[in-house]
Design a protein around this nucleic acid. Structure first.
Lengths: 182, 182
DNA sequence: ACCGAAAAGCTAAGACCATTAGCCAAGCCG
DNA sequence: CGGCTTGGCTAATGGTCTTAGCTTTTCGGT
């Protein structure tokens, strides 16, 4: 029996491919093992079960998401567009970034730290708007909520009308920014 | 063997109780059957499997959610507050309202119709702001996205800082409304 | 009042899912 | 070359949903 030559990072890579194809709920141990050409229990040699795999995958996605945001530059609108593009084009990874409840898990530290970086990126972009100091946290929350809500509603097919969702999004962000700087 | 005296509506009632206690993912046929004092396959006599049960439960929740919004009156801020209060106090039912992908299912009609009523309620509240006719759909989407994003981020523990989330929400809604009517 | 049929429960069984235990062989290192 | 670590495996357990088929209750019609 030749070995498959797996490793933690290789398993995570394969899991990411599965995630992109089958979504967050479809990223099952069976699917990953099949794609790796290996029996399911073999994965436990590299990864701490399904929760551990999800945690590892989420960490990669959070870091990737943050990189995308950073690359969008310091403009709030560009940042929001980039975040939404990521969420729409890679729904599985976006769900991994936002979706987990590992906020309550034991190994939440790494994830929380990585998420904090993302929040800080948004805060940087908002600083250029010249908000009052006390309003910054509120503004970050508002932007995150608007973008996240848009992405998830769209992903769930919540926008029944076929009107241009891109335009709606741009206008919503513009309106919120206008209201924040009012 | 005495009968349990179940019915479709009774099963849905029990499922709602399970939903409130165990959340959307915890609303399993096993949990519902146990609470009903019945074996799992017996539920199939009243409900079309798990997808059918979810569809029925979602329908009830959508109608309830719409009633809550209507009761909040025609003010946008009050409506947003009511929606968020519902989402925070009954996370399971809120997930049922928003969460499904039955938009693509075969029996999406009833659900879609009920959801359309909710959207119309929001549109009514926004009409009092005196928006330009073409901007209405965009405005509804913005409000829905902001509220929905806030609720889901909060439910996922996405707001790390312990700052007052209620105040952040009120300010976010006020900012968006200000931006929309600008 | 009775008989038959529909309805409502049940058990059994099958397909997946995650997880644990324990075995065996591959490969590295002295 | 021998042994130990490591990475694969099979087997088994318990959970999920689902279908098939059986039994018993219950109700309606004559």
């Amino acid at each position: 029996m030749p070995r498959a030559g797996l490793s933690r990072t290789r398993v995570v890579e394969i899991a990411l491919a599965t995630l992109d194809e089958d979504g967050w709920d479809g990223m099952t141990l069976g699917a990953v093992a099949a794609r790796a050409g290996v029996a399911v229990p073999s994965l436990y040699k590299h990864v701490a079960g399904l929760p551990g795999l999800r945690r590892d995958v989420a960490l990669v996605c959070v870091e990737e998401f943050d990189a995308v945001l950073r690359a969008a530059g310091p403009d709030v609108v560009a940042l929001a567009r980039a975040a939404r593009r990521y969420g729409v084009s890679r729904p599985g990874r976006y769900a991994a970034v936002q979706g987990g409840d590992w906020a309550h898990g034991p190994d939440a530290q790494e994830l929380a730290a990585a998420s904090a970086v993302t929040v800080e990126t948004i805060a940087d972009a908002l600083r250029s708007l010249g908000l009052e100091p006390g309003a910054e946290i509120d503004a970050v929350r508002a932007v995150r909520a608007l973008v996240h809500g848009f992405v998830t509603l769209q992903a769930a097919g919540g926008f029944g009308l076929p009107d241009d969702v891109d335009a709606s999004f741009d206008r919503a962000v513009a309106s919120l920014v206008a209201g924040l700087t009012r």
